[in-house]
Amino acid sequence: MSFERIKPHLPWITLLVLVLLVGIANPSFFDPAGLLSLVTDVVPLFIMALGMTFAIYIGGIDLSVQQLANLVTVIATVYLAKFGVGVALVAVAAGFIVGAISGFVTTRLYVPSFVSTLAMGFVALSAAKYFSGQRALYMDAELRNSSFGWMFGNTAGVPHELVIAIVLLVLAWFLQTRTTFGRSLKAVGSGEPAAIASGLNVDRVKILAFAISGVFAAVAGLIFSVKLSGGDANLANGFLLLAIVAVLVGGTPLTGGVGGVLNTAIGTLIVMVIRAAMVYLEIDATQQQMVFGIVLIAAIALTIDRSKLRGVVK
């Protein structure tokens, strides 16, 4: 059996092996309540990674997600009093606009996505600093509970946060596999020149992909903000690396075209298990970034489709 045939199955095999390893070393890992809280903790990251999947699926990348989530935590906190639940719409709109601008700059102005999204991330950072007055802000507890308290309840033992994540996953999965837009994404990711030649409006597909990435990042920021009951221009820092890792270890390669949102779900769980293992092995938080950086390199090297790079790797 060749490696190329095992490759698509590698993510879930990795997940299974990791879970077994961690479980054997520490049987309390399988405690349902503990496991459930681990999964719930990873929800904002998962939502951000879901959005990132769309950007990577078309062969781009979105480096603005972290700053965008930061901006949304600030917007949500500042405008909660004014709009109530409606602040969610403001957040989603902000995410859509920033993402769409990144997409526009990438497709129409020919700026590579890693530069355009990096730059838009700094624009978002500026906006976050402006809205927050460069301070850490806190939500009014009563207002938070009346508007967004439902996010953190339980129904029959299932946390609502998890339900939100699953609903978004189903939505993203539907978008990716059951719509024309999803097929176009696949076409663009598999080979952009071919997609252009067959008359697809590639620019529109790419702009939408970045906009979706922005929307999911905004939702992640909103949930994170409500969870921590506040907003700050640096609150979501540290998410970017983990979101990219989640997408790539899930099996969506940097070159795009294969993988997808279900892979990202597996990838996020892998990240979660690695994190749990590090806590168990008493590797403290400061070293985790290093470990995930190395995991990232390994994941890219394993998944990337080198035939698409046409011999030249810049």
Partner: peptide, 12 residues
């Protein structure tokens, strides 16, 4: 706070 945004636009 405007500096980061100005630099971002400048890059593009």
């Amino acid at each position: 706070y405007a500096q980061d945004g100005v630099l971002g636009l400048l890059v593009i």
